Simulated scan of single mutants.
Amino acid sequence: MLYLVEHFYSIQGEGRYTGVPSLFFRFGGCNMKCEGFGCEEEASDGTKVLGCDTVYAVNKEHFSFNWSPIQKTQELLNVLDLYELPQRPVDIVLTGGEPLIYANEGIFVEFLEKLHEEGHKITFETNGSIAVDFEKYPIYKECIFALSVKLSNSKEPFRKRVNGDVIYSIASNAKEAFFKFSIDADSINLGLDEEIFNITLHSPRTQVYCMPLGGNKAEVEANTEPLIEFCKAKGYNFSDRLHIRIWDQNKGV
């Protein structure tokens, strides 16, 4: 069974397609917690849960009221009819949580196939640790993958967050792929360049985008200037987090 946490029509705020109008599907569930990111969300029972800036799409225990079970492909396709889209096809972004935990689910694969048939561009926002069967499900070869491989600042162990075979497979088989790292100012002076190298060596020709870590506007702004200087020195692409800079902590925008 799939769980859909939210959907919204907005602009892409990160990575290669920043500023592009996109319809987002945020799926529930993840294979990581990333408590090192330090973003805190308060549940309805008052419990404060630590994790990434979308912890409500990771922690089902405390945020299950946001998680809608999906049992048919058409339930997902119906979402497109809820919005006054300026034109079709449109950019569709599948995010989470970690959307690839559903990579082998029949409902999910059929959803991708239907989107592709209608001409939509499909982008996955993934941590790049879960294998995709490109031969069994060739639809994934038609998708774009933003590989947000987690760094040590996530507090996840290296063996869990970095899978070289998966990174290589996605970058080699996908229609398009790029790295997208979340970086705080403190990490820049703690061997960050070597850490990024140890990830990107699995696909050295794949472009790198670095974006400031933060769950709110103040945190993003505090990490922006040091990160820009790092990108200038290393030749990486700087990616803003435009949605947070504009809407701060508001969800679904």
Rank of each mutant, 00 (worst) to 15 (best):
C231A: 05
F111A: 00
V109H: 02
R88K: 12
K232E: 12
V90Q: 09
E229G: 07
F134K: 09
S44A: 14
S203D: 08
S239V: 06
G164T: 02
K121T: 09
Q87L: 08
S203K: 04
K141D: 08
I122P: 00
I107G: 05
E75G: 06
E125C: 10
V79Y: 11
T95Q: 08
N250P: 15
A174F: 03
F158P: 05
I183W: 13
R161I: 02
P21M: 06
T200S: 11
C210E: 00
A131C: 08
E229Y: 14
Q207C: 08
S203L: 03
V166T: 09
Q74T: 11
T54P: 03
A57G: 08
E125I: 13
E221V: 15
F63R: 07
N153Y: 05
D248K: 06
G215A: 03
E35Q: 15
E61M: 08
Y102E: 01
Y140P: 01
K175D: 04
S152Q: 03
F25D: 07
Y9N: 01
L77D: 08
I188H: 12
V109G: 07
K121E: 08
E225A: 14
A171Y: 06
Y3G: 02
S172K: 11
K33W: 12
E113H: 00
S10F: 15
N127Q: 11
L77N: 04
L192V: 12
I167F: 00
E61I: 01
S44V: 04
K175Y: 07
Y209R: 00
A103L: 12
N104W: 13
V55I: 13
Y168R: 15
C210N: 00
E118C: 06
F181I: 03
E113A: 13
W67L: 02
G215R: 02
Y3R: 12
S187G: 10
E113R: 10
I196E: 01
E61W: 09
K48G: 09
V93F: 03
C52G: 13
R161N: 04
G38W: 06
N66W: 15
A222P: 11
V109T: 04
V90H: 02
H202S: 14
S152P: 07
R161C: 03
A43C: 08
